[in-house]
Amino acid sequence: MSNNFKRIDGRTPDQLRPYKIRAGILKNADGSAEIKLGKNWIVVGVYGPKEHFPKFEALQDRAILFCRYHMAPYSTTERKSPKPSRREIELSKVIRSALEEAVILERFPEMSIDIYIEVLQAEGSTRVASITAASVALAEAGIPMKDMVVGCSAGKVNGKIVLDIGETEDKEGEADLPIAIMPNLKKVVLLQMDGKLTHEEFKEAFEMALKGALELYEEQKRALKDLIEKMKELEGESNE
């Protein structure tokens, strides 16, 4: 029975939407990345480290990480007001808090590192997609990190635990569980849930989200390693 289970977009329960990550897409930013996950399209730019202003707010033993998660007015079906909503303020905080676990901030006292996350098109699970792209952008910026951070969501839709919740599934589903992990250190750095899940369902959803995150981690690796691969092919191009 469960093998025949198809989701609203035709996916199997443990299938991610199509995804693609690209690193170094912005010319002006110190580091940047883009993620496409289903119809989600998110761009991240990293600036810094730079001197923190105002000076009295700077920390003497580490850098301050600033993070803004922002949705474009045209990113949703109904126009979203461009001014930051309470949801965006909360998400900016949980994303920052997750990335703080990975970035070695102690190397840059008195500095700040700014992460700007712009959701250009939203289709559910944007916070975890944002975090996945943000950590690629930080790596591309050359900011030291203990590990990458990669996120994925799972949830319960029509009584079934499924991976990578889409927009309709989020609205109609019974529960949503976004997580982000440091895949090598095996630590959870973002964990939220809303809806209703028994302890068994929570465990099942958590483990499914974990598997999805590890699949996306491979994509992060590919996107970053591509940058270097591109810089190796001198012969091919010099013939042009």
């Binding site: 676990e101 959870v188 964990l191 939220q192 302890h199 929570f202």
Partner: peptide
């Protein structure tokens, strides 16, 4: 938690934790 024993909201407020710690704290 709900009266049924189900979970209805989770929020990691600070720091990180191992996979085992998620279930231990739960």
């Amino acid at each position: 938690h709900l009266s049924t024993g189900e979970i209805c909201s989770v929020q990691l407020l600070k720091g990180g934790l191992t996979y085992e710690e998620v279930f231990k704290t739960l």
